[in-house]
Write a protein that binds this DNA or RNA. Structure first.
Length: 188
DNA sequence: GGTGCGATTGCA
DNA sequence: GCAATCGCACCA
């Protein structure tokens, strides 16, 4: 059912808008063997542009963050702490680097996907998918069961305390109270 | 060419 | 509380 795949217009908006709209959508991954994993997103974070001191794009374009500078609709995958992958959805127009970090989905096929590193592991996402298009291919997003406004909660982003006043901005979006949201209770 | 560290996780 | 583990950003 590729007709359910979200198109370019969904991604080519400000990261904050895309982040809110990603809650409840379905992350889909077709494995090399052909099996498709699906999980409903319940936690994401927006990284809004070069002005955002928490964003990898804050210090300009580098080899690692190059996909963030493209038009929305790509995956930006990187390795943290030498062992965990993180997956972002690139957003906005070309030349305006922004992205949304995918932090948790409801457990796909019984696996835990609570936390950015666990999510990429559960969906078998690594550097081979860095720069991959979400508009075609083995990694994409689909419609899902929407999260109504009354269930959306915004908090500060996790693990970016170095970002000064940007660390305080409420750019993390979660489905309030959901069991698969990562982090300490305070952030739920 | 060398160095320090991170959008995290699991275990003591 | 803290070690694991390595690509890459930055400096020389």
């Amino acid at each position: 059912m590729s007709s359910r795949r979200l198109g370019a217009a969904f991604y080519r908006r400000p990261a904050q808008e895309v982040a809110r709209d990603l809650l409840g959508r379905t992350l889909c991954r077709e494995l090399p063997g052909g099996r498709v994993l699906r999980g409903r997103l319940v936690e994401v974070e927006a990284y809004v542009g070069t002005e955002d001191a928490a964003s990898h794009a804050h210090r300009g374009r580098t080899h690692r963050n190059r996909w963030m500078f493209e038009a929305g609709g790509l995956a930006y995958v990187y390795l943290v702490y030498g062992m965990h992958h993180c997956m972002n959805v690139v957003t906005g127009e070309a030349g305006h680097p922004s992205a949304v970090l995918l932090r948790a989905t409801e457990s796909p096929n019984g696996m835990s996907a609570s936390g950015p590193g666990r999510l990429t592991r559960a969906f078998s996402i690594d550097l081979a998918l860095d720069g991959a298009s979400l508009l075609e291919g083995a990694l994409w997003l689909e419609a899902g069961e929407p999260v109504p406004d009354r269930k959306v909660r915004r908090t500060r982003r996790i693990g970016v305390d170095y970002a000064g006043r940007w660390a305080a901005r409420k750019l993390r979006f979660i489905e309030a109270g959901h069991a698969d949201v990562s982090g300490p209770r305070f952030f739920k």
